[in-house]
């Protein structure tokens, strides 16, 4: 069995699970925009919002921290880079490298904001079936002229489906090469090319087989888009998100 990965749908009956996926995408965009500019009060408010929604969606805290451990490293890098690059009052110096008070504060805020955006994304993906995300994007892109919304939606669905498969292939090829002492080659570009080329070759071969499989199951790009219906609570949620956004911008 392959490993379960972060950001996949978990069935449930929470408020988020019942929301229209288009509404969730709009709210996620608004909340993310709000997060980018928010300071202490706003971030506290957004953290509280996340906690309430996560509790309602039955998302265990332990799982969140376990699944997001790699993002933790990324946040640490963001924090450290802010600490070292922001000008201001030095609180620690070593061989000409200064850690500034402003850098620490800015690093904490930047990490907090990014963490919130990632966590909101996690909430969105655990509460939305991938097919609904695809349908929502199809609906949202439909009014825009010259945008092939159906093709984009199919491509997105296939990307979600095939990322784990391509990662598995990459791991398999990498293991096979390490078993034949690729680690002994010092040139990283050569090592990378030895990995990338076979992965691409296998991915292209697989895409041909995928096209055959889709064709054999009567795939038609112009198949009807499944209907979606916004209810009153969806409109209320969007109104609240807009209101939240305006308030946080003005704080």
């Amino acid at each position: 069995m392959a490993q379960t990965i972060t950001f996949h749908f978990q069935p449930g009956t929470s408020f988020l699970h019942q929301m229209d996926p288009r509404c969730k995408i709009i709210c996620l965009a608004l909340v993310s925009l709000s997060t980018l500019k928010a300071v202490t009060a706003g971030l506290l408010l957004l953290t509280l919002l996340f906690a309430v929604l996560a509790w309602d969606a039955d998302l265990p805290g332990k799982t969140i921290f376990f699944e997001l451990r790699y993002f933790g490293l990324f946040l640490l890098v963001v924090f450290i880079s802010n600490c070292l690059t922001q000008p201001g009052t030095p609180i620690y110096s070593l061989k000409g490298i200064n850690i500034t008070r402003e850098g620490v504060v800015e690093g904490l805020f930047a990490s907090w904001r990014l963490a919130l955006i990632i966590l909101m994304g996690l909430l969105f993906s655990v509460s939305t079936r991938p097919k609904d995300i695809r349908t929502a994007i199809e609906h949202l892109l439909a009014p825009i002229p010259f945008v092939p919304e159906k093709r984009i939606a199919v491509m997105m669905g296939l990307i979600v489906r095939f990322i784990p498969v391509i990662l598995g292939t990459t791991r398999e090829i990498s293991d096979a090469q390490r078993a034949r002492a690729i680690d002994q080659r010092k040139n990283p570009i050569l090592r990378m090319s030895r990995l990338v080329l076979p992965v691409m070759r296998r991915t292209i071969g697989r895409s041909q087989r995928l096209a055959d499989a889709m064709e054999s199951r009567c795939f038609d790009e112009n198949r009807p888009t499944p209907p979606l219906k916004m209810v009153r609570t969806d409109w209320q949620a969007i109104t609240l998100a807009v209101f939240f956004h305006i308030i946080l911008q003005s704080i």
Binding site: P130, K131, G157, R161, R206, M214, S216, R217, R223
Partner: peptide, 29 residues
């Protein structure tokens, strides 16, 4: 004529088990 290919991974197109099985019937309208 339903075709089941050699490599199942390349044949599965849905993001979930349900979506994959729904793919054909949806295409048939």
């Amino acid at each position: 004529v339903g075709m089941i290919f050699q490599e199942a991974d390349s044949q599965i197109v849905g993001e979930t088990v349900f979506d994959d099985v729904a793919f054909g019937p949806e295409n048939l309208g």
